[in-house]
Amino acid sequence: MTRVQFVRWVLKPAVFAASLAPLGVLVRDALTGGLGANPVEEITHRTGLTAITFLTLTLAVTPASQLLGAGWLVRFRRMLGLFAFTYAVLHFLMYVADQTWLAGQGLSLALVAEDVAERPYITVGFSAFLLLVPLAVTSTRGWVRRLGGKRWQRLHQLVYVAAAGAVFHFLWLVKADTRRPALYGGALVLLLGYRLARRRAARRRRTASIPAPAAPEESTASG
């Protein structure tokens, strides 16, 4: 079995199954009363936490593949990103249900819109979620072709904004214990920092490789 085959037929299905595990555990706990005294809150928190975890993992793929020299890792990036989106959808749906149906309000989208507008941490979280939608839609090979690599890449840089939004959303909602959101924030800073440093290094290399124009110092000195 070649490495490509191994990745496609063994590793990918394994990662796919592992990515479904948080949902499986959630369903199991929901059926066995394992969600504690406040299941709605538990589902909201768990799906949110899982979404931001997958978002962080997605952003870690490129640096990891470069640092480890393991280019094949990039093959998992889209899957992880789509799982981040999937869990974000579940998180969002639970929130909407909690605001409308479970609040005895019927499915009023106006109510959701009002809450989104009124509460900054919801505004930020909702914006981050919205930013993920076009990325999920254009995650297919066909869309890369249609948009062209450069434009596609630029569009998908929105994921940084979404991730930052998700971290702020998390940081903003905790009452006093900021340890966990800070952990995700730290990871995000590291992953973005790595990219910026790498880009700067690349630019420096480019400028260094351009032949320097004739040095003016000598002529000034002699003149």
Binding site: A37, V40, D115, P120
Partner: peptide
């Protein structure tokens, strides 16, 4: 400042009151 106090969920209830 960050959430509504108009309703509450009684533990054990699905719907808020």
């Amino acid at each position: 400042p960050r959430w509504s106090q108009k309703r509450e969920r009684r533990l054990g209830d699905l719907f808020k009151r």
